[in-house]
């Protein structure tokens, strides 16, 4: 069932795609500010940046409806932002503030938001996949027309939970869109050093899950593939699998000295920067110009400034609340 995604040549770019650029830029500028805030110790703990991979979350999430669900990993600032979790509450979370989207209990790796059906922020590699299968099962059993998009890195493919989850979702024909963000390295271990069969789509195909390999640096390609996969998944054709080939430009986390890859490789991928690529195409078609881009930068910077100010002004959760929500307060 694995087939190359139908090619339609390079996707035409339209005025509506300016919004994709704006979303990617939000993620990029938000995270660039996070680096500064980490250096100034406002943000602590593990922090994993999505810089370079913005086209993946932006393209996929743009195809979801408001009732669909998202399950993401610990590298999820971008997914949360483009899903509509307010930048303020994400930044406040990373500051450990009670105004954060998880009350400061989760931090960078555990963003949760019920109002956008954003189910984390999962820091056990592969651990989110069974949960996504269950969300889809629950939706299906209640007759709801919803899709669960589950993001995970290619490192998760080595986990048993990946195989168990694909099998179960396919067996029960559940509406899960498995989005494998293949950035080539599981922390510092290259795919070919950990997989006897490095073709990820083949693994999905083994479970009868239709699988497409997509250029994850081209947001228009990502959106095109995701739109088809979401539609087929929602229509009841069972789970679908996208391998999104991408690259993180920055280190794995703030502690990573990057001994496992050479600078030339990073430089090569940086030439394929998804934001620059889309900007170039929009410019070429006359859909944006310097003024539009400057205004967009200004608007995004204002949003990030506002998020930081909100987080700075936030409050600490009272220590008396430490044991709140170990169990539910509302004993339904």
């Amino acid at each position: 069932m694995t087939a190359p995604i139908p090619t339609a040549g390079q996707q035409p770019v339209t005025a509506a795609d300016v919004e994709l650029l704006r979303q990617m830029l939000r993620v990029r500028r938000f995270e660039e500010r996070c680096v500064e805030l980490y250096s100034s110790t406002k943000i602590r703990g593990f922090m994993h940046l999505y810089i370079g991979e913005e086209a993946v979350a932006t393209g996929v999430v743009s195809c979801l409806g408001p009732d669909d669900a998202v399950v993401a990993t610990y590298r999820e600032h971008g997914h949360a932002l483009v899903r509509g979790v307010p930048a303020r509450s994400i930044m406040a979370e990373m500051f450990g503030r009670v105004e954060g989207c998880s009350r400061g209990r989760g931090g960078s790796m555990h963003l949760f938001d019920a109002s956008t059906r954003f189910y984390g922020g999962n820091a056990i590699v592969g651990g989110g996949l069974p949960v996504a299968v269950g969300l889809a099962l629950g939706d299906r059993m209640q007759g709801r027309d919803r899709v669960t998009a589950c993001f995970f890195g290619e490192g998760a493919v080595a986990e048993g939970e990946f195989h168990e989850s694909l099998n179960l979702a396919a067996l029960w024909r559940l509406p899960v869109l498995f989005c494998c963000e293949n950035n080539l390295y599981a922390m510092g271990t290259a795919l070919e050093l950990s997989e006897s069969q490095p073709s990820l789509a083949l693994k999905a195909a083994a479970y009868e899950v239709p699988a497409w390999t997509v250029d994850g640096m081209d947001v228009l390609e990502v959106r095109r593939a995701a739109a088809m996969a979401v539609e087929a998944t929602r229509a009841g054709h069972g789970p679908h699998f996208l391998e999104l080939q991408t690259y993180r430009f920055r280190a794995h986390s703030m502690y990573d000295p990057e001994r496992y890859r050479d600078k030339g490789e990073v430089a090569h991928w940086r030439e394929r920067d998804p934001i620059e690529a889309l900007t170039g195409r929009l410019r070429a078609e006359g859909l944006v110009d310097d003024d539009v881009l400057a205004a967009m930068e200004q608007e995004v910077a204002a949003e990030v400034d506002d998020a930081v100010a909100f987080a700075e002004a936030g409050s600490d959760e009272p220590v008396e609340d430490l044991t709140r929500f170990v169990t539910s307060e509302d004993q339904r």
Binding site: A69, Y119, G127, L129, P130, V131, A132, V133, G134, L135, A136, L137, G138, D139, M141, Q142, T148, G160, E161, E164, S165, N167, L168, L171
Partner: peptide
Amino acid sequence: PERVRDTPLSESAFVGAGVGAAMAGMRP
């Protein structure tokens, strides 16, 4: 079979599916 479901021998997947289904409003 919708409500009494035989599962594969995949403890992690079907327990995790229970977690997800519970969050989606079921009582697994």
